[in-house]
């Protein structure tokens, strides 16, 4: 029981710390501040996806779609429907903005979770790469639907979003996400996710409803993605459907895989590392002392990204922090009997 309280204190400390840092963040270069905020958003996205991909073993490739829903719903609500709230609370002051921001973030998260439920219920009957393809397709559907919705700007994107996202909000959400995922997995209920990943047949046999666990993980992951999308929209103040495409989903998946599937600390670390790496490569292309070819490759960052991906899979498929699954047991796949202990004389 004590351990649980420690986690709560850590969560509280993280939120307070991010509040303090955020309060004194006025002096930080706004470019660096933006990167720090993106790191926080990516941590939220990756940890949320890790619940689906890492802990429950359901490979989802459509996370950017849920992020898009959260971003658009939150942005639309805070831009178009904030007037009434501000009028009731006496103009845009600290209190009304805080209330508005929290409610639009949650609304975005809930919308994404609802989409996750709609997507998850039919598609989670599938396994492995079929599921990956279906979620990929749904992610694209969401993007294309947004692209053709004129109320949110369609392909022109949605601009004029207020800049509400601060360091405090980003890192509080990231801390809450980590807290929820870690406590969930540590709880009795949460062990079900792991059993679904390790052996679906056996968990069905002991009375665990695998579909229910899968859908739960999916909906929760989508919720966090939606909240992260809301943060993202209020940080960049302009969102565009093409910013939530397949490649974005791949970026989040790479964070999960680089960190190690089923390791929250590793995934958070990978989110920091990859965000920084991609930003750093921008500068590498400007270093005059480097050979021309290296600078040109660095300018085309995805080449390096893909090489990292391939090298990682060949050399350390379990990720930086992950543990290698027992040999012969693919995630969400076949069964293998545990080795019986040798009989001693």
């Amino acid at each position: 029981m004590k351990y649980r309280h420690i986690k709560k204190w850590i969560l509280l400390a993280a939120i307070i710390l991010s509040g303090i840092v955020s309060h004194f963040s006025g002096g930080i270069n706004s470019y660096y501040l933006q990167i720090i905020i993106f790191i926080g958003i990516n941590i939220t996205l990756a940890v949320g996806l890790n619940l689906i991909n890492g802990y429950t073993g359901q490979f989802s490739l459509g996370h950017a779609g849920f992020m898009a829903i959260g971003a658009y719903v939150a942005a639309y609500l805070s831009t178009e429907h904030s007037a009434g709230l501000f009028r009731a609370l006496g103009g845009p002051n600290f209190f009304s903005i805080t209330l508005l921001f929290i409610s639009v973030l949650i609304a975005g998260g809930l919308a994404a979770a609802a989409a996750g439920l709609i997507v998850g219920v039919p598609s989670l009957r599938l396994k492995g790469d079929y599921l990956a393809i279906v979620t990929l397709g749904f992610g694209e559907i969401i993007r294309v639907v947004i692209q053709n919705t004129d109320a949110v700007g369609g392909p022109r994107g949605y601009s004029g979003i207020a800049n509400y996202t601060t360091l405090f909000w980003t890192y509080s959400v990231a801390a809450i996400t980590i807290y929820v995922v870690v406590s969930l997995i540590d709880s009795t209920y949460g062990r079900g996710f792991l059993t679904v990943r390790d052996d679906e047949v056996a968990s069905e046999a002991v009375g665990i409803s695998t579909t229910r666990y899968k859908v739960t993980a999916f909906v929760l992951g989508a919720f966090f993605a939606g909240v992260a999308g809301g943060l993202y929209a209020h940080s960049t103040t302009y969102i565009n459907p093409s910013g939530f495409d397949f490649q974005r989903s791949i970026e989040i998946v790479v964070m999960v895989i680089l960190g190690g599937m089923g390791s929250t600390a590793g995934v958070a670390f990978a989110a920091i590392l990859l965000t920084l790496l991609l930003e750093y490569l921008r500068f590498v292309s400007g270093y005059q002392w480097l050979p021309e070819i290296i600078r040109r490759i660095a300018a085309n960052r995805v080449i390096i990204y893909s090489l990292v991906l391939i090298a990682l899979m060949l050399l350390r498929p379990q990720g930086l922090f992950g543990r290698l699954p027992r040999r012969g047991i693919p995630i969400g796949g076949a069964t293998k009997r545990a080795k019986l202990p040798a009989l001693s004389a």
Binding site: F59, G128, R296, I303, S306, L309, M313, I329
Partner: peptide, 24 residues
Amino acid sequence: QRPKLTVLITAIGVSLFLEYGGQF
């Protein structure tokens, strides 16, 4: 001999590499 997912991710990596390498 590795899980199918590993191969899938590698395939995505190869795809991105060829695509952007081609662009390069």
